[in-house]
Structure formats: structure tokens, C-alpha cells
Design a protein around this nucleic acid. Structure first.
Lengths: 339, 339
DNA sequence: CTGAAAGCGCTTACAG
DNA sequence: CTGAAAGCGCTTACAG
């Protein structure tokens, strides 16, 4: 038999309303009464019935975690997503929210689905990863005035109103990577960026340029390449550039790209770091790769944690804001000074 | 203003109860009435309030997706998890369930948390990935008699009662991989298995043995190795075995291991498939690797889909059962006949 | 086939 | 500080 607040009230000899007040730590209840109620609850192993409470207060205490998984490449080769979710989950728990998972399938009519979720009052707000994804649901979100925050800087598409988001400091990611190589004496640095459709690629290019400028090195467009975050793409781009350009160092985005590059170099008799230095970001596989990669670490856990905080602020006080998570250079053996 | 079933009833000129009956497609309502109600609902853009309905029917229509993310290695190098979730999500949608995400943190007192979730009536049942994880919550699940199914065969720890689960046909995975190499004429096949603590490793070893036996090849214990699903571990094991044993082919578990092995071989002047053939399973990175790997594909999407079906059967009719998803050999250029 | 009523388990004004 | 009552939005016996 389920134990209800009724049982708790009865056992502690107070009314249901008083029991509720005590259980919810409301101010206007005497210490002794509260004590009595709490003890009774404990003895009966009482736990509030979420559904009932939610109905009464008109909230769901659920956050919709909305993920376009179809973009699997982006995540599959790293623990980015795992860490991100961990951060989201912990922050949500702290604030009394649960996470409802929504997987966006490109095929489905995402906008209509989002509309249904909102109208069926399933969530208090949304956390949306990867805003560079097509966003047909954006209008629905807005007309329903439901809180949401993006993980990743949304592209500028002439939004009328501002959007809450969290993101890595992608400018710094590329800047630190590049600066590190410049400090080691490298001047011709191949920059393998992500696809232009992602905002982080724009930001990282900026960081690369900033670093060069700081060291008075002029940018050679032939050293800036775009590639998907895959082994083959990096392999291909590296090999191709090898034929056209001289360079002594490479900045790549992630470990998969690093692996692809390293193998392309090996194929041409070049080894890392003896002949070419490499720095990557996103440390996922770093420990499992040979040689251990110098990386600019990003912090997806923090990203997730802060995303929830922003969302909660939007839910309770309607605040729109954004947060940028800093990054950190971790030197390892894949980079070496140029003689 | 929220539109409720009251509004629908009013607009269609029937009582609230009739409206409810019609909306839920209950049999005892005349076609004309149903039609009227449905039209009104449509016109008003009515959607049932989930929380209210759930409270009334005493269910949550939520499935708890319970994942020990701490085991990141296992998933990080593949799209296994992504596909799995996709399958789970789609099946859940089909059956009217939403997914509530629970991330198990080793540090936290998981059992106590599970207890809270159950008592607060947050879910109708659990889907639990990776049962080889420590399972201190198992007792809680059982004493509360809440439905749950494992993704992956749970280890035999003297359970009194049977447990529902889905799993890949891991015996066949290893068997097909090995048979393929045997057919190509290979006889000395290095088998790099996963860590012994996982049930799939037991199953796969079985498959390897079965295949050898079928071809009357006696098992050489020196060719059976355990490694984590990582680049370095596979690299290390491969290199080590190279010094002790002769072999012409390797069976590895996933693409990360394949990469590690390939690099170890390269270091010793051996290339794939000219000198050594390799077959992997779990096709995640296959397309991004050079050379393209012969794999035994597994189907995590199906795994997820079927897990939900089993759970739902357990919820509605208390049925305990299990399902095994078949696998499939995909020959590519990393394997070649022995001359 | 349809309607009035009770109830799911909680919270929150409103009196006292 | 405490209690009786109404209400959150739905569903489901129970009569008719």
C-alpha cells in the first residue's frame, strides 16, 4: 500500500495541510510540529508523489533534453557528450529537476513534436544541444514562450530576441593551441578546422588568426582547411596539404582527426613529434593514443552544469543570459620545439 | 490560457466524461459523438495534460533509462550508445512512453537513489544498460517489484528469480569473425577479447572456441588475450604477442582496438591486410579507418527497440523474457586469403 | 450511449 | 501556528 501525506498527517496528529507545510519546509509551522511530521514521514518511509505534487503546483520539474543524435559523428569519437550529460544531470538533481530525453530524428517532424511536448505540459523548459542543427522548432519554442537554452553558440540568423546559451571558449581553444606552437618556434602551422556550418569553427578560426597576428605571422590561406571530425577527412586533408605546402605543425580539432593526420604523416615517412608537432582539443582519447597528444582541454561537464543553471534562471526569473567555459592547454609529447 | 477537456466538452456539447471517453478512443461512444468531440479538440488545439492524466490512471508512462556513464570507455569510441538510445526512444514513443534519464555516478549511493525514484513514483519501469556494473540497486528493484530489463546479459550471481534482458548474439559475433578467417585459410588467429568482467567477453570466447573446433584447429591459449577496448591496450597486446607467437590474423572487438593493433603492426613493419588480416565488430568507425575493416556488425538500434518491448510486456503482463539480436559479417578489405 | 460524481495525492489561499 | 476546503485536469465506475 502506498503511504500518502494523509498517513503522515494522521500519525503525527496534525492536519494534511500542516503536514504538507512541514514537509515542504514552509516557514509558518512550529519547530515541534515540523519535527513531529518529519519523524512520522521517516518512520512511514513517506515520499511525495511527484505526479500529484506537480499537478497541484502546475509545474513538471522536468527538463527536456533535446538532442539531434543524427549528428553522431560529432560525438561518437569523444566523451564530450557523456561528460556533458553528467554535468547536466548533476546540476538538474541539485535543483530538483529530472531529465526527459528527446531524440530528434531528422526524418520526423520535429517542430510538431516539440509542439506536442509543450502542450501536453511535459517539461518546464528545454536544453538543446547543437544549435547548428536545423532549427524548425525555434518558432514553436518562441510562440509558446517556453524557456530553453542552447548548448553551443547558436548561429546568427537574424533572431529578433536574444537566446540563452553556454559554449566553450572556442576562440581561446584555437588561440592557445596556436600560441603554444608559435612559442615553440613553429611558424607554418596547418590549421584543420571543423566544417564551416558549425559556429565553433568560426570561433576557432578567429583564435588561430588572433594568435598569428600576435606573433606577427601573416596568415597563409593555404594552411587553413576544413574537415569533418573524422579519421578519413583529416587523413585526406593532411595528405593533400603535404603535397602543396610546407608546414612543421598541425592544429586539429579532436583525437580522431589527430589519428588520421598521424597516419597520413606516417605514410609519408613523417613522425610525430620528430618531424611534425600536433595539438588537438577535446581530450577524450588522448590517453589512448600514441604519442600522447598535447591538447587544449575543454570542459563539457561544466558546460552541462552551467546550461542547467541558465535554464533554471530563465524558468524562475525569465532571465536570458549566456556563459562561456574556459579551456586549458595541456602540453604532452606530441609537440616539440623547432630547431 | 490552457485549454482543458472541459472546454472541449463544452464546445462539442457533451459532458466531460463523454469527452474523455471519445478522446481516449474508448468503445462505448457513438461515432457521431466521437467525431464531434475530436473536431472540437482539433479546433481548440487541445492536448491532454499528461500530469493530470497520469495522476488519474496511476501510471507515469515514463521509463527510467538508467546508465552507469562512468563506464565511458566502453561507449566513447563507438556509436553503440547513440544507436541504442535511438532504438529505445523510437520504441518508447510508439508505446506512449517518455524516457527519463538517470545517470549513475559511482560515488553516489545509487541504491538509495533508485529507492527514491521508485517511491516518488517517477517511472513505471527501468531500462538498465551494462549490467556488469556493480548492482547494489538490484535488491531495491526487487523488493519494490518494479519492472526492469537489462541491456546486456546480466552475470550469473545466483539470482533467485530470472531477469529480463536483451543482448547481442556475442557467441555468434566471435564465431563468424573467426570462421571468416578460417575460411580464408588462416589457422593461427590472435583473439583479442574484452575484459573478463563483462559477460560479452565470456560469450565471445565461446564463439572463438566453437569456430576453431568446427575447423579442427586446436586452441592455443597463447593466442587468447584480454584487453580493454582502447587503442593502447590493443597496441600493447598486439606488440607483446608479436614477440611470443606466430599468427596471420587478428580478431578484435572494436575499431579503437583495430587502430591500436594496426599501428603496433606497422611499427614492426607489418601491414594490413598484406601481412596480417583483421576483423573487428561494432562498426562505428569502420568507414573512417584505413583500411576499411571487415566487421561483424551488431545492431544496437534493435537492441534498444526490443528492450522497450520487453519492458512494456513486463509492465502490462508481468512477463519475464529475453531477446538475442543476431549479427552479420561484412567483408571489407582488411581481410584477405592466406597464400 | 451519456452524465454526475468521486477520486488520484498533493498544495495553497482562506479563516480562525 | 493550524485546519477545512477547494482545486490542479484528468479518468472511471456507477446510474440512467
Amino acid at each position: 500500500m502506498r503511504v500518502t501525506i494523509r498517513d503522515v498527517a494522521k500519525r503525527s496528529g496534525v492536519s494534511v495541510s500542516t503536514a504538507s507545510l512541514a514537509l515542504n519546509n514552509k516557514p509558518k509551522v512550529s519547530p515541534e510540529t515540523r519535527e513531529k511530521v518529519l519523524r512520522a514521514a521517516q518512520e512511514l518511509n513517506y515520499h511525495v508523489h511527484h505526479t500529484a505534487r506537480n499537478l497541484a503546483v502546475g509545474m513538471t520539474y522536468q527538463i527536456g533534453l533535446f538532442t539531434p543524435v543524427s549528428l553522431e559523428h560529432t560525438f561518437s569519437s569523444s566523451d564530450f557528450f557523456t561528460k556533458l550529460i553528467q554535468g547536466i544531470y548533476n546540476a538538474a538533481q541539485d535543483k530538483g529537476y529530472s531529465l526527459m530525453l528527446f531524440v530528434a530524428d531528422e526524418a520526423a517532424d520535429v517542430a510538431a513534436q516539440v509542439d506536442r511536448w509543450i502542450r501536453s505540459r511535459s517539461v518546464d523548459g528545454f536544453l538543446i544541444t547543437h544549435p547548428s542543427f536545423q532549427m524548425p522548432y525555434l518558432d514553436v519554442l518562441r510562440t509558446n514562450a517556453i524557456p530553453f537554452v542552447f548548448v553551443g553558440r547558436p548561429p546568427e540568423t537574424g533572431h529578433t530576441s536574444p537566446i540563452s546559451y553556454v559554449d566553450n571558449d572556442n576562440v581561446q581553444v584555437a588561440r592557445k593551441a596556436t600560441e603554444h606552437l608559435l612559442e615553440l618556434g613553429h611558424r607554418r602551422i596547418l590549421f584543420i578546422n571543423g566544417p564551416a556550418r558549425f559556429t565553433y569553427a568560426q570561433d576557432r578560426l578567429q583564435g588561430y588568426q588572433d594568435a598569428l597576428q600576435q606573433y606577427d605571422v601573416s596568415l597563409d590561406p593555404g594552411l587553413v582547411k576544413a574537415a569533418e571530425l573524422t579519421f578519413v577527412d583529416a587523413h585526406h586533408v593532411t595528405e593533400q596539404t603535404l603535397e602543396e605546402q610546407d608546414f612543421t605543425a598541425i592544429v586539429v580539432l579532436n583525437a580522431m582527426q589527430a589519428l588520421g593526420s598521424i597516419q597520413a604523416l606516417a605514410k609519408h615517412g613523417l613522425s610525430v613529434p620528430q618531424d611534425i608537432s600536433i595539438v588537438a582539443s577535446n581530450s577524450a582519447l588522448t590517453a589512448y593514443i600514441h604519442p600522447p597528444l598535447t591538447t587544449v582541454d575543454i570542459f563539457p561537464y561544466q558546460l552541462g552544469f552551467q546550461a542547467v543553471q541558465l535554464l533554471q534562471r530563465q524558468i524562475v526569473e525569465d532571465a536570458i543570459d549566456h556563459a562561456i567555459v574556459p579551456c586549458q592547454l595541456i602540453p604532452r609529447s606530441s609537440t616539440v620545439a623547432l630547431h
